[in-house]
Design a protein around this nucleic acid. Structure first.
Lengths: 352, 352
DNA sequence: CTGAAAGCGCTTACAG
DNA sequence: CTGAAAGCGCTTACAG
């Protein structure tokens, strides 16, 4: 197939280099470089000539050479603990980041870092030093690994963290207002006519779990509904813990007419437990979750929940990494969205 | 912070290069290169000296330089249509591929290619030519995009496809035996005592859907159970189509005591529809799915299903890409696994 | 607005 | 078993 001795121009076999383009356009490679990188200082006529040559040779700059020479690659790292785990939150972030990267002409390189790993610093060093990443996106629970963040800072790599526990300097954080979101859902349930609203909280060492609990209480208080301790059950964000909390809530004397679980996995558990007591959803019991997990749409009835604006968060993250320096450091809060579906309704007259 | 005028060795500020290591170990860079790449022809003593120097300087080879010089990068591309969509099948593949890559010292770069995109060839050219990918993994539905496969072949990039429709030359394919898997599930249901087993098939233009249907029929036939047309309903792999098929099956005069849906989304739909008829699962109706989707474990009761050995498939895929040439081209079939959970049980005496 | 030259940090024949 | 040199394909001061 290959024919090295062939005298004809190698337009087919070998990829064109910047030299080929320069020669064809009768300019220096410097000029080609400028055109490719969209720098000014090139006359319209020259630019057009170069562009034509690029087109004709279907030239693509070699990213490896570009990165080596400029000491920065066009790659953004996405560091995850377990990309495929959980309810798809991480997967959704990845998809959004990827879309943004492609829009900006960057590539996404995904790395798995185990939060329990000991010398993270070493691993990061290997990863970042080797590839000269243009920036790194951290997803939970990695957002809250001081060792990771420090190691990254030491390599002078820009960082964006998704939903971190606490804000930090030198770092950009993107998140939603969990308290407000929980407040909104609770208020929506109250607006529906519910007075007895159960709540299943997440682990209290998670800042988001605390914030959601706070939002729930705030909404009740504002509506003049006394909060009852037995209506607020603990959970740990798993399906099973949701089912257990559901059992407790549904066997209460004055059982709630609505249950708001702080995530979709637990909401799913509640729905499972409601089957045991022959409660129909949403006629006998309204259930709301949080996250808009993949399965929230595949269960019956579909789950009312809160969706994070992951697309916008990713957009903010990537553009911050690429144009970093323009944006201020700190926490960026983006607006969430309540998704109302079939699992919530007005309480039946009998229940109220 | 940085102090270029500082005379002390730059062990901290700047990353060590191969020259620094060579100097410290008193060898040429060639020798360092050999040690790093695990090539022979280096005496034990020298190798040890180099290794020590590498350790002391915490040297990491620059991947960009390595790639540029050798004309091949240590990156493997994972091409997906929509990484986050669906029931997590793609996400799981990604996780497995990623794990393998890290084990082999490669990086994973994820690219999103829309199957509907017109000139895929161009996009591939840009992607692969730019980054000199060591290999590419294709996931459905991209596995069956001739334009993609051809474009990739033209760049001489090794390819591995997950679950393609049809085998091809020059390409390695990994898959399970869908017919056998469906046969196994059906046989398991028969073994439980079910005689009236409904089936919901996938779209018949999918090879896997056809194979699963075939497996179902084969198991019935072997057991001497006549297959009934009204027990075999069409579906298109969505939750909704599963629910519709469920309605049809459950309103049949002799309704099935078990339903086997060709994927978990449809199985989930069946379970939803069963609620309408006050059928308890698994007491009144057994339901089995296929895929072991993320939510299969989060529903109630948990779904009996078939899991693909994604870890092994990924292992085969990556090692094939890296050591390609060693392995034969063609289709590699790996063993599936039936996961029995709470959604299936013996039929109740009344029903049989 | 454009060129010539050095250099990014490796690998790879080619010698010895 | 090891060295010296060229080259991978770009970018980036430095000149003009």
């Amino acid at each position: 197939m290959s024919d090295p001795a062939n005298g004809s121009p190698p337009e087919f076999q070998k990829a064109a280099t910047i030299y080929d383009v320069a020669e064809r356009a009768s300019v220096s490679i410097k000029t080609v470089s400028k055109v490719v990188n969209n720098l000014p200082e090139v006359s319209r006529a020259t630019r057009l000539r170069v562009l034509t040559a690029i087109e004709e040779l279907s030239y693509r700059p070699n990213q490896l050479a570009r990165g080596l020479a400029s000491q920065r690659s066009f790659m953004i790292g996405l560091f995850c603990d377990a990309p495929a785990a959980g309810s798809g939150y991480i997967a959704r972030i990845q998809m959004a980041i990827l879309t943004m990267c492609q829009k900006e002409g960057y590539h996404l390189i995904v790395e798995c870092i185990h939060a329990t790993n000991q010398n993270i610093a070493q691993q990061v060093h290997a990863l970042v030093a080797q590839s000269k990443l243009a920036g790194v996106v951290l997803t939970p629970p990695l957002s809250d690994l001081p060792a990771l963040v420090e190691a990254l800072k030491a390599t002078n790599t820009p960082i964006v963290r998704f939903s971190p526990e606490t804000s930090q300097t030198d770092v950009i954080d993107v998140d939603i207002d969990n308290c407000q979101a929980a407040y909104d859902i609770t208020k929506y349930l109250i607006g529906l006519g519910h007075q007895r609203i159960g709540f299943i909280r997440g682990p209290l060492d998670h800042a988001d779990a605390r914030a959601r609990l706070e939002g729930y209480k705030k909404a009740l208080e504002e509506a003049g509904i006394a909060s009852r301790d037995d209506y607020c059950q603990p959970g740990n964000y798993t399906y099973k813990s949701g089912m257990q909390a559901g059992e407790k809530l549904l066997t209460l004397k004055d059982r709630p007419t609505a249950i708001f679980a702080s995530n979709d996995d637990m909401a799913s558990g509640v729905m499972a437990s409601s089957l045991r007591y022959n409660l129909r959803i949403p006629q006998d019991l309204s259930v709301a979750g949080f996250d808009d997990a993949i399965f929230a749409y595949a269960m019956y009835p579909r789950l009312t929940t809160c969706r994070q604006p992951i697309g916008e968060m990713a957009e903010a993250a990537v553009s911050t990494l690429i144009h970093h320096g323009d944006k201020p450091v700190g926490l960026l809060r983006l607006p969430h969205k309540i998704i109302v579906r079939g699992s919530t309704a007005r309480p039946s007259p009998a229940a109220t």
